[in-house]
Amino acid sequence: MAGYEIKPSGWLTFDFRELWHFRELFLFMTWRDIKVKYKQTFLGLAWVVLQPLALMAIFTVIWLKVMKPAELDIPYPLFAYSGLVFWGLFSSGISGAGESMISNANIIKKIYFPRIIIPASAALTALFDFVVTLFLLVLLILYYQIDVSLPRFAGLFSLSIMITMAASFGIGLIVSAATIRYRDFRYVMPFFLQAFFFVSPVVYPLALLSSDSLRIVLSLNPLAGAVTLARAAITGNPANWQAIFPGTLMTVFLLVAGLTLFRRNESSYSDLL
C-alpha cells in the first residue's frame, strides 16, 4: 500500500483491503500467542486437554452421586466434555480478546496496524486450543461406540463452532474496548465468566429446568444454542432449532455491537493505553 490520508477520526467502515494487507501480521500474532503460551510448560499442549478432562471427571462424580440424574441421550462424561470444550472456546476467547489490547499496549503505541488484529488473533488462539481438545472428544465418541453420521456431524459441529466463536469474539471486543477505558473490567471478567458458566447448559441439559420462562431466557445465551447444536450433532437426534434460534440471533447482535464499538473507539486506543 503506497500512501494514505491523515485525518481526524470519523465513523469508519471496515477497510477489508487493508485487513488483507495485514494478514501476515495477524497470523504471526496468533502464532506468537500459541508459542508463548506453551513455552516453558512441562506438559505443554497436554494442558489444553487436561483442563476439560479434569472438569469432566469432577462433574461426572457430582452428576452421578449428587444430582440424581435425569435421562440423557448420551453418557454423561461425553455430554459434559462436549459442553466443556465449547465452554473453553467461548470463555478463553472472551478473556483472551479482553486482555489482549492491554497486554499488547507496547506494540499498539509504537506501530500502526488495524487494531482488530489483536483481539482477533486472541480468538484464533482459543480456536487452536479447541481443536486440540477435539481429539479427546473423538476418542470418547469411539469409546462409547456412538454411531455418528459424519457429514451431518461435520455440518452441525462447524455451525456451532461458528456461533461460539462469533459470540465470544463479539463479547471479547466489547470487553477489550471497555477494559481500555476502565481497567475495572479486568476484575469483573473472571467473576462474570464464572457466573456465565453456571447459567449455560454446559454440564446440565437445558431440559433440567422446570420453568418454561427461565428456559426461554437462558436460550438467549449464544452458548446454549451452540452446545445444544453440537450435542445434536453427536447424538444424531434432530436439532431443536427453536432452542437454538434465539441464541444465534443474540450472537449476530453481539458480533455487530462488538465490531462497531471496537471500531468506533479504535483511533483513541493508542492514546488511552
Binding site: 500500500m1 500512501g3 494514505y4 491523515i6 481526524p8 499498539i108 500502526y112 483511533s267 483513541s268 493508542s270
Partner: peptide
C-alpha cells in the same frame, strides 16, 4: 500522527509513498 498510530484532532495530511 504521521505514522497513523494516533489520529489528529483536526487538520489533514497526505502521505504519498510507502512508509
Amino acid at each position: 500522527i504521521l505514522s497513523r498510530i494516533t489520529k489528529p484532532t483536526s487538520g489533514k495530511g497526505r502521505i504519498n509513498a510507502r512508509v
